[in-house]
Design a binder for these strands. Structure first.
Length: 719
DNA sequence: CCGCTCTGTCATTTC
DNA sequence: TCGAAATGACAGAGC
């Protein structure tokens, strides 16, 4: 008879642990006992009510894919599936019935809620539910376990099969290992992708939807390597794993291995492709629900969207290069399998940039995606390659910074870096402020000519007036030059009316920023290179003269006096402004109207040429400045993004550390409890295990535990 | 006087 | 092919 107690205990314990650690409202739900209460309760009991509550809570999530971010949704989906998978423990109904019949209420064994679940599953019916029984952890047998190395899994294979049989001859095929659901939630990429798509496209209706369960379970059955192994396809399983501490320790292992897979490039290399594939599949379902970082990750995704939006708004060219749905959430979620939540930022970033065509179906690539593909985002936004070429940014985005999440030194260094970045940003802003004050003057209004021009017209935007009958009116009629200062000041007014830019941006090179805003927000600026407004009649748009600028007008008059005087000397019968601003046809008509000698015609053509070229030079310079300003803004935005991402990363790492500590303490508690109950069966090695587990979760601990199991195995063989 | 910025202008290229 | 625009380079004015 299968050890149903084990199944239920391990399963519910796992769910409780995951729920408790995942922050999914477990703490605020009065009906669901915290996992500590579960495991510390008498005989590790989970009452019928508790079980129902647990299940109802999960059912009650009833998350809608559109109301919850995908990861949150999917995590809840998994949890629910886990619980529901308890319905289908692959325990034959006959066995379960037999077990129920022979159950001894006194021993505290119970399958609370299981009856109902089985009823749903078409299993046992009309089975009397026990009022409140408890499930004992373990089967009263040995709590140690041996290692059955799964060669197909490589170094990580031991995680899956730590079995308890002293004699490997006793290995049996086990259908429905209670731990199966422990691993089941990570179907292969294609299946998971399908699930995700389903999740997006239809609301969750778990209650009474057997197809949903069937889908989940079948997906796992078809894809989970353990499941296949459990069913004897690859590996014969040995006995039962009735040690909850084993499960928890495995949980710790998985987390460690997750980090190891990230910090150790070998694990992601082609040589260990198999390992990586399995390891990822095994790790993902554990890690994902452990992390309460959904908000954080969601923020990250949003931040990334913001960045893309900024790039889009700042540089149309860039936007064109990134236009291939940078944050297509509907992209195949080939990455989320690995440590969904806490590296969800990486996934999001990757999804933001990974082309759909790149089919990262194999796990190796998945590993690489999670760890090293992030720089690709630079490649996609080719126009921003330079901006991203900061090695620090690349290092940040590659995820290599996640290499040693538990390394305090690293985190401290990172925090220091964040602080330095903040300081650098402040300095940057100050510098920009200083630049705008005393540095490169991007404000043309400060130049005498421009200032004079500014007084001339408030509606003299050269291109903006191109569609109107009016034309920019230069203050100096003789010259006919249209200062682009007019445009700028008009834009300033417009911007002032529009408003809506950040203060720091205002700090950052105010004038240049204004210039940038002109170009990025105003459609007419795209015609800046085709300024034909000089041909507009001056009289129609000449603004009231500002007495304040009369002196500057003299300066401009002086500047333009040369051609003007020359024109007067040659008795040119019309003003320079007309010469410059008139359209070609009118200009030719004007020339034909008067009988001019060769010298006069030459001078007129020179004046026209110079006047036009002057405007062209002004526009050209303004464009250059705007390009510089745009680049400046991009750099600043990227720096801010970098600081923000570093900060997010630090927070996430802190959360991970907390979770690990929680798991550690949990392991300790479970182990102590087991030791109390089964203390006599524990050996010195077990004690070493306990001591070992009090230390922080490290790869060292993992290796120690691994070797410890081998040692235990050898000792048992000797017996 | 020097250095810098701004501006206009020329020559040339591009559209 | 022409005209206009764009742009690099240079020079002059002004600070």
């Amino acid at each position: 008879m299968p050890d149903l107690k084990k199944y239920l205990t391990e399963g519910l314990l796992q769910v409780a642990i995951l729920l408790s650690l995942s922050g999914m409202r477990v703490d605020v739900d009065p009906y669901l006992p915290p996992f500590r209460e579960i495991i510390q309760g008498p005989s590790l009991a989970l009452t019928q009510t508790q079980f129902h509550n647990l299940r109802n809570i999960l059912d009650g999530y009833n998350l809608h894919p559109k109301s919850v971010d995908l990861d949150g949704f999917f995590t809840a989906r998994r949890l629910l599936s886990w619980v529901r998978s308890l319905d289908r423990l692959q325990v034959p109904a006959a066995d379960l019935e037999a077990w129920l019949v022979h159950r001894e209420p006194d021993n505290g064994v119970s399958i609370p809620g299981q009856v109902g679940l089985l009823e749903e599953a078409g299993g046992l019916e009309d089975v009397e539910e026990p009022s409140e029984l408890s499930m004992r952890l373990g089967n009263g047998g040995e709590l140690g376990y041996d290692v059955v190395e799964d060669q197909t899994l490589g170094p990580l294979g031991h995680m899956s099969r730590n079995l308890n049989h002293p004699d490997e001859d006793e290995l049996i095929k086990e259908e429905g290992d209670g731990m199966s659901f422990f691993w089941e939630q990570e179907p292969q990429q294609n299946v998971r992708q399908e699930q995700l798509e389903n999740a997006r496209t239809q609301p969750l209706m778990f209650n009474g939807e057997e197809e949903e369960d069937e889908f989940m379970v079948d997906s796992w059955r078809n894809t989970n390597p353990f499941h296949n192994q459990m069913f004897g396809e690859d590996l014969q399983l040995a006995g039962v794993r009735d040690d909850a501490s084993l499960a928890i320790e495995e949980c710790l292992h998985l987390i460690d291995d997750n980090f190891a897979s990230e910090e150790d490039p070998e694990l992601t290399g082609p040589g260990l492709q198999n390992v990586g594939e399995h390891a990822l599949q095994f790790q993902r379902p554990l890690i994902s629900p452990l992390l309460p970082e959904q908000e954080s990750t969601f923020n990250l995704e949003q931040q990334w969207q913001d960045v893309l939006a900024i790039m889009e708004s700042q540089d149309m060219d860039i936007a064109e290069t990134t236009g291939d749905s940078p944050l297509n959430v509907s992209d195949s979620d080939r990455n989320t399998g690995s440590m969904d939540n806490f590296i969800h930022q990486d996934v999001s970033l990757h999804r933001a940039t990974l082309p759909r065509s790149t089919d990262a179906q194999n796990s190796e690539e998945t590993c690489r995606i999670n760890n090293h593909s992030l720089p690709n985002l630079n490649l996609d936004t080719s126009a921003n390659v330079e901006a991203f070429e900061d090695s620090d940014i690349i290092a940040l985005l590659t995820g290599t910074s996640l290499a040693s999440p538990l390394d305090p030194l690293l985190e401290e260094a990172m925090l220091d870096e964040i602080g330095l970045m903040d300081l650098a940003l402040e300095e940057l802003e100050e510098q920009n402020q200083a630049d705008s004050d005393s540095g490169l003057s991007l404000d043309y209004s400060q130049s005498p000519t421009s200032t004079t021009g500014s007084e001339s017209s408030s509606s003299s935007s050269s291109s903006s007036c191109s569609s109107s009958p009016s034309s920019p009116t230069p203050m100096i009629p003789e010259e006919g030059a249209v200062g682009y200062t007019h445009i700028k000041e008009e834009e300033e007014e417009e911007d002032g009316a529009v408003g809506g830019f950040m203060p720091e941006q205002t700090k950052m090179c105010q004038s240049s920023f204004l210039e940038a805003r002109q170009f990025h927000r105003l459609p007419w600026l795209e015609h800046i290179g085709h300024d034909h407004t000089y041909n507009q009649p001056q009289s129609q748009k000449k603004p009231p003269k500002d007495p304040f600028d009369e002196s500057k007008e003299k300066v401009l008059e002086h500047l333009s006096s040369r051609d003007e005087k020359h024109a007067k000397s040659l008795n040119i019968p019309f003003s320079n402004e007309r010469i410059v601003n008139l359209p070609v046809e009118e200009f030719n008509r004007l020339l034909a109207k008067y009988h001019l000698n060769e010298a006069q015609l030459s001078l007129i053509r020179d004046i026209r040429r110079r006047g036009k070229n002057k405007l062209a030079a002004q526009n050209c310079r303004r464009r250059k400045l705007n390009v510089l300003v745009g680049l400046e803004r991009n750099v600043d935005s990227l720096r801010r993004l970098r600081v923000r991402l570093l900060r997010e990363k630090s927070e996430i790492l802190s959360s991970i550390r907390e979770i690990k500590q929680l798991l550690n303490s949990l392991y300790q508690e479970v182990y102590e409890r087991l030791r109390e109950e089964q203390g006599l069966l524990y050996t010195d090695n077990n004690f070493t295990l306990q001591q070992d587990c009090t230390s922080p979760v490290t790869s060292q601990r993992r290796s120690d535990s691994h070797s410890r199991r081998k040692l235990s195995k050898r000792q048992k063989r000797k017996k």
